[in-house]
Structure formats: C-alpha cells, structure tokens
C-alpha cells in the first residue's frame, strides 16, 4: 500500500509541476481510522497528504462531472469504468484527464470491521498485503483482509483500471470463477409475493435522504425525477409506494450504466442493500445485450443502442 502512496505522490508532483494538470484528485487520511476522504491536491505541498490504502472506497469519478480544468485522478477498476462512462456521456473530456490507474484488491468494509471490534476504539491501523493490523486501548487484532472486503469488491471482476495514463501499482490478477449473481438468483427463485415482500423489507428503513443518489457517479442530473414538478408524479414522502418508486427508477436509470462500485450502499446511513436492484439490471443487460458498463469508450450505454436481433420473446 505504501508503494502505491509513493507512486501517487510522485506522479502528482510531476504532473502539477510540469503544469500538465491543475489538480490531482485522490485521498487523504481521515480524522478517524477506516475513513479516508477524497482530497483535491493543487500544490506540491498538498501532494504529500495523498495516501492509498484499503479505505479508498469512495468513487472519485463522482468528482469529475462538469469540471473545466485539467485533472489527474486516481482510479480503481470501478472508478475507471465510471470515468469511461463520464467520457461517453460528455461529463468530462478525455483530454482533460490524466488517469492514475490503481489496480485494486478490494476495499475494506468499515462496517464489518466495526462489527468485529465490538465497540472498541482503534487508534492505529496497519495494512499489509493480506492482513489488517488494528491497535487500540485493550485492542490488538490481526484480520484477514479478504474477509473484510466490501460486498461488491468481493465479487469484482474488473479490479484493474480499464483506462489509464499511468499505473501506480502493478496490474493485479482478475478474480476468476466469481459468481456475481448468486443473490440475484436467490430472489429470482422466489414467488412473486415473496419478491414483493423481500424488496418491501429491503427498503423499509429508507428515510429518502438520497445519500445513495448523491454518492453515485452516474447520478448527475440537474433535477432528479423525484423532484420533477411538471407534474409532480412521485411524492417526496416516505410512503412505501413513493419510496419504492424512487428506488426502482433510480436503479432503472442506471441500467447499462452501473459499474457496481458500491458507492450507494457505502453511503447509506441505514444500510439498505440497494445494489439488489441494480445488480438485477446488470445481470439482464449482460445476458440480454451482452454489454458491460464502462468498458469501452467507443460504445454508448446499453439503452442508447440496439441490435436488430435483440431478444424479444416477451413480446407477443
């Protein structure tokens, strides 16, 4: 991890001092452990605050839309796919970007760690290749890193950036034989009524705070459909139908665009597993249209495209 940090700083310094970019977007240490925060370094001094470890889960692509300056950005596999999407969807120009690709072995799920600590406060954390060492008062714990990954990282099949200018670490081996859709199939096997109740329970706690929407790099509309007033067809309350409409259509708007970066679930204050909506769409898009989001900057997203022989068994 330290090696990544060194290389990020080195590249950032070079790019800033050569005047190649105006800003470098990466991470710096947060005020509490397991909580790095996005950081925009504009000077060589600021560069030294940049770090890299397993707590860089925030998708930095979210900081790119509508920027007009020249930007270097550190990008994991998922981030890079969202950058590709941003390029395709005119949110930023490729020429503006210098992508510092960060091959990724998954980000740490702070909630799992927290559960493991059972209320104890960590004061220092060391991350090595395969392990996490946590120290604190009455606390010394060594955890197996791979057991504490974000759910989406555990099943990730695009750990390496798909588009980059420099790499800040060696390319990693992609996970093989990953079953990405076990949970989707579980729901598919349910009866209609069970499905309905499953999703009712899933979103029952939603407080309509829109943290998921705000964290999602692909949600960048000036006015979200839930705020539409011509007419206002979705209520803003936590009425179950309105809440479901929100989650349903939010997911639908991500059809063929979601990279399963996990930003939505990461940001949810009430732990809603809203990836269950988007993953179903991801699975269908792959199966029906043979398309994966954010892989190819030459291709429009799945719904901006068609093939004459697209599946249509559902049409009479």
């Amino acid at each position: 991890m330290q090696a990544y940090t060194e290389r990020i700083r080195e590249a950032a310094k070079r790019l800033l001092s050569d005047g190649k970019v105006d800003v470098v977007i990466g991470f710096r240490k947060g005020t509490i452990p397991f909580m790095n925060e996005p950081y925009l370094a504009k000077t060589a001094e600021q560069v030294d605050q940049l770090v890299w470890d397993g707590n860089c889960g925030v998708n930095l692509a979210n900081y790119l839309p509508k920027r007009t300056d020249r930007v270097a950005v550190v990008a994991k596999g998922c981030d890079s796919r969202n950058i590709v999407e941003h390029i395709v969807e005119n949110q930023i120009k490729r020429e503006q970007l210098h992508i510092l690709g960060a091959p990724c072995k998954g980000m740490i799920d702070k909630r799992r760690i927290k559960a493991e600590l059972k209320g104890k406060e960590p004061t220092s954390v060391e991350e090595t290749e395969g392990e996490i060492e946590i120290k604190g008062r009455d606390l010394k714990l060594t955890l197996n890193r791979s057991d504490f990954l974000q759910e989406n990282c555990a099943i990730c099949i695009h750990r390496n950036p798909v588009l980059y200018d420099d790499l800040v670490g060696d390319l990693v081996e992609e996970q093989k034989d990953v079953d990405r859709y076990a949970d989707v199939r579980q729901v598919e096997a349910m009866s209609t009524e069970e499905k309905w109740r499953h999703f009712d329970d899933l979103i029952a706690g939603c407080i309509r705070c829109y943290a998921c929407r705000n964290a999602c790099p692909a949600c960048y509309c000036p006015t979200c459909f839930v705020d539409e007033s011509r007419p206002q067809w979705v209520g803003k309350t936590i009425d179950p139908t309105d809440t479901r409409t929100f989650h349903f259509l939010r997911a639908y708007h991500l059809a063929g665009r979601c990279t399963d970066c996990g930003a939505c679930e990461r940001s949810c204050p009430v732990d809603i597993k809203m990836r269950q909506f988007t993953k179903k769409l991801e699975k269908d898009v792959k199966e029906l249209f043979d398309y994966e989001a954010g892989i190819n900057p030459e291709m429009r997203p799945a719904l901006d495209f068609y093939r004459p022989d697209d599946p249509q068994a559902f049409i009479k």
Binding site: V88, E89, N90, Q91, Y220, C221, P222, T223, R300, L303, D304
Partner: peptide
C-alpha cells in the same frame, strides 16, 4: 437546458 445533464442520449439515439 436548465434540466439537461449533457449526457447525449438524445443526440445519440
């Protein structure tokens, strides 16, 4: 235009 996100879906399709 105030609501447009410049995503280009319309231009594309």
């Amino acid at each position: 235009p105030i609501d447009c996100s410049s995503c280009g879906v319309c231009v594309s399709i």
